[in-house]
Amino acid sequence: MTTQPYAEVIGDPIAHSKSPLIHNFWLAELGLEGEYRRTHVRADDLPGYFAARRDDPAWRGCNVTVPHKQAVLAHLDRVDPAAQAIGAVNVIVPENGGLCGYNSDGAGFLEPLTDLLGQTHLYRMARILGAGGAARAVTHALVAEGFDPVVLTRTADKARAFLDSLGIAGGHAAALESFAAPTDFAFDDRVGLLDLVVNTTPLGMVGQPPLALDFSHVPPGSIVYDIVYAPLETPLLAEARARGFRTIDGLAMLIGQAAAAFARFFGPAPPRDRDGELRARLTA
């Protein structure tokens, strides 16, 4: 058992995770003792994993990625109210003799939208594809910023249940496949509106099929945001860029959510003035 402080990211799969590069870059820049790792943990291994970490004084906590962001709730002693409302956790730290869960996905997702969110809009709508743990944080954050959510998942009923589980009485639910076929819908004037299209599914990730989305469903002037970061340029983002849409890639959210987690694991805030160099390393 190591005596050097460490944190880690857990998931299944996990080999693709770039989180160790991010956190270890910040540790080196700040001259802090510590290490950040990736650890492959299957669903059946979660009880044993947390039992072992509870007894490890060097462990500073973990990030949680797919598919465990909801399953880990059963293993925690306390959950931050915001994470409880989202129903998913992506940061776990030892606190006051127990394990506490937080969610930094929402704040990380919103970070590259900060300037836009400071502006006034007549109406804000977000088309959110997916209903997993990341989608819960994204939807919760966007609704808090005044967006009307359209959630698309395998079936409209599942999408409606997803909205209900977040306590969102309004919003819209649709089947993901309904956006795969062309539409002749004529969008009205979008001046003064803010439209987002957000992929929170693993579709487009390395080893996964591309997301089937026909761009006739994307309003003019939309921002297309894909939280997948392996590859950085997903088929969705490549087509969006080719069509002239503004795009945001998955590294923006990854770095943003990591910053909040880093402070909980290691104490100080990370050196965000080095984001350019960090992004260059992540894309090398």
Rank of each mutant, 00 (worst) to 15 (best):
K69F: 12
A131L: 09
Y102N: 08
V93I: 11
G133W: 03
A161Y: 00
F109I: 03
G132V: 04
F147E: 03
V151C: 09
P67V: 14
A141E: 03
I128P: 10
G146M: 05
R60N: 08
V79Q: 00
V79G: 01
V79T: 12
L129W: 06
H140I: 07
G133Q: 05
A169W: 13
H68W: 12
L76M: 10
L166W: 12
N96H: 13
C62W: 06
A74G: 15
P112F: 02
Q119K: 14
S104D: 10
P112N: 05
T114S: 14
L110K: 02
M125I: 10
T114W: 11
G132Q: 07
V89S: 02
A88R: 02
C62M: 09
F162L: 09
D105W: 13
G146N: 06
R160G: 07
V150K: 02
H75D: 14
I92F: 05
G101D: 01
D77I: 13
A141Y: 00
A159Y: 14
P67I: 11
E145G: 01
L117P: 05
D77Y: 15
L142V: 00
G167E: 07
G171A: 12
N103A: 02
T114I: 14
R124T: 00
S104L: 08
D164N: 15
L166K: 09
G106K: 03
Y102E: 02
K158V: 00
G106Y: 02
E145T: 01
D115W: 04
G108Q: 09
T120E: 12
D148K: 11
A144N: 09
L116N: 08
S165D: 11
L116M: 12
P149N: 00
Y102R: 01
P112W: 06
K158M: 10
A156L: 10
A159I: 12
A144T: 06
V150Y: 11
L99S: 08
A88F: 05
L129Y: 04
A85T: 11
V93D: 03
P67R: 10
R136Q: 04
R136T: 07
G130W: 05
D77F: 13
H75C: 13
L110C: 03
N63L: 11
